[in-house]
Amino acid sequence: MTATRQRRLDWRGLVPVVVLLAAWEAISRSGLTDTRIVPPLEGLVGLLGTEVAEKSLLGNLAASIVRDLSGFALGASLGVVGGILLGLSPLASALLRPSFDVFRQIALFAWIPLIAMWFGIGEASKIVFVALAAFTPTLINTVEGTRSASATLVEVGALLRYRRSQMLLAIYLPAALPSILTGVHLALIQSWLATIGAEYFMTAGPGIGTLIIEGRDRFQMGQTVLGMILIGAVGFLLNRIARAAENRLLRWRTA
């Protein structure tokens, strides 16, 4: 049953996609617009080929992904550690949480000039910016998670005279895991966004963001659209991977 529903959903869902692509192709072939602005679709496919073969599209993609994951790893791990600290220590929370809440009001991209000035040219600025994007959601959700440990379990732990480390590993972390994973998942989405932003606004270097800005500057709409599709596809894949990892980890917990 699911299979048939799946198939039915598929063809109906494709209708507007096909209509859109057909309209694109028609506009492109009508000669009403510059083909650089609306390139024919087969041109786009051809472009994919030449970009991969000649212009190291894959190199740009790899550069973006490495940048993304480095910043993400840095920001998310700091977020988890900070979140556990703030979640478990009322003192740390009272000291730091208000400042954190004030700083996170500043729209992410407004940090770019300051970070560029502080960390200069090269990868450091970009990675710090991506890490900042990953840090905030991880921290918030980790705090929520650690505080959601059930009071009963905590009491049991106290009765069993668990040490602090045992308390953390046996009670708080398992309770916080779903929430931490939500935070990490959000962080993954945010850091991909930040990666593209960093490539727009910081020193030029290889990357998908650079590629699509270049396409815009040179009126190569094909290149820009190709870049956008890649941004969307990578975002989608990261999302999928995060969800799968989440499910697997949570299944392990319940088992």
Binding site: A116, M117, W118, F119, G120, I121, G122, T203, A204
Partner: peptide, 16 residues
């Protein structure tokens, strides 16, 4: 530097 002179200043400020 695509960011021209202002970007050079940023780099100087960071000893880069």
């Amino acid at each position: 530097f695509a960011g021209a002179g202002p970007a050079v200043n940023e780099a100087f400020a960071n000893n880069q």
